[in-house]
């Protein structure tokens, strides 16, 4: 009341609203995920969410910030979900906990909390896990392995050591290792391990959710469209140059977390650019780096490093892409 000034009316969007819709949009992908890979992923998501909320609560207390408002803004939950969805579903529980703690405490709150984090928290959590536990982080669940809730729970508690054949490399990883033996790529791509259709279906689920986000204007078209378009163009180009060495675009668009990244990860507003042109450049930069890391780098999937690197460039990107003000030349 001290500062009652116009506007006296307000629209209805709120941060918690936006984040809630983002979580809603993740659900189709999540359901398909569970359909093909069992409830392991759900356990991970629940654990990550609980860890995130508790971590957030304590750190808010320590920083003497009102907890209620900030706990209900749903941002910690979105971070937790994205991280859990990026981690293999057969990772043991402590992987998820460590990753989430890093994401919330280091990547988010050490940088000042919501609105101030320079880096995408989920990607920092993921990158740290990838560097620290490469063996666990690059093993994906073998969909042909029969599973039930008991096994899923046991894996969740103790890891995969008791079960043979439950894990295999991800397609990106598989193709990469095979290529290192100087083979032609075409036969490799036809191997079952390189054509994990189940994972592609999950990607399709995220695509649906992403379209929903576009439709509800939670995100703008710039980031996902440019990201996918760039990935498409680069991979097609390389494929044209040497079809025996470089996979065609379908392989890159459908595998890995491409769809999740396009619609949910690179669209994190806080650590991304704000101008339309900046968004275009940002998405282009990430796609370029993702491709380079996937094909030439040391890791099979490069989204985390690409996003983190692009995050560093955001202030500069924003600065250089200021749009023209009404009537200015």
């Amino acid at each position: 009341m001290i500062n009652l000034q116009s506007p006296f009316v307000q629209g209805s969007t709120s941060v918690s609203n936006i984040m809630f819709i983002v979580m809603l949009a993740l659900i189709p992908g999540l359901i398909i995920y569970m359909y093909f890979f069992g409830i392991g992923i759900l356990l991970n998501i629940i654990l990550a969410s609980i860890t995130a909320i508790i971590a957030e609560y304590f750190i808010l207390k320590i920083r003497k910030i009102p907890t209620k408002v900030f706990l209900t803004d749903n941002t910690a939950l979105v971070t937790a979900w994205l991280l859990a969805l990026s981690i293999p579903s057969i990772a043991p529980w402590w992987i998820t906990v460590i990753g989430t703690l890093f994401a919330i405490i280091i990547a988010k709150h050490f940088y000042g909390g919501i609105g101030s984090n320079i880096f995408n928290p989920a990607m920092i959590g993921y990158a740290i896990l990838l560097i620290s536990f490469p063996a666990i982080m690059t093993k994906w669940q073998n969909p042909s392995y029969l599973y039930d809730a008991n096994i899923a729970f046991s894996v969740f508690m103790h890891g995969i050591d008791n079960y043979d054949g439950i894990a295999s490399a991800t397609p990106l990883d598989y193709v990469k290792t095979e290529l290192l033996q100087n083979k032609n790529i075409l036969p490799i791509l036809n191997e079952p391990l390189a054509r994990l259709t189940q994972m592609q279906w999950v990607g399709f689920g995220f695509l649906l959710g992403g379209i929903f986000l576009l439709f509800t204007k939670i995100i703008t078209w710039h980031l996902p469209v440019i990201y996918l378009l760039t990935l498409f163009t680069i991979s097609s180009l390389f494929h044209l140059i040497d079809p025996s060495q470089f996979a065609p675009f379908q392989f890159h668009l459908l595998n890995g977390g491409t769809m999740l990244a396009a619609f949910f990860i690179i669209t994190d507003p806080v650590s991304g650019p704000t101008t339309p042109k900046g968004k275009i450049f940002f998405a282009f930069l990430i796609a370029l780096l993702v491709y380079l890391i996937r094909v030439f780098g040391g890791y099979p999937e490069g989204i985390a490093f690409a996003v983190i690197f692009a995050n560093i460039c955001v202030p500069l990107i924003d600065n250089l892409t200021q749009p023209k003000v009404f009537g200015h030349d």
Binding site: I2, N3, Q5, P66, G112, G115, S116, I118, P315, N319
Partner: peptide, 17 residues
């Protein structure tokens, strides 16, 4: 016009452009 004062304003925002 005075500097806006409202309830929750404790989070330090440190992102400089």
């Amino acid at each position: 016009w005075k500097y806006p004062v409202y309830k929750i304003d404790k989070v330090s925002e440190r992102r400089a452009s």
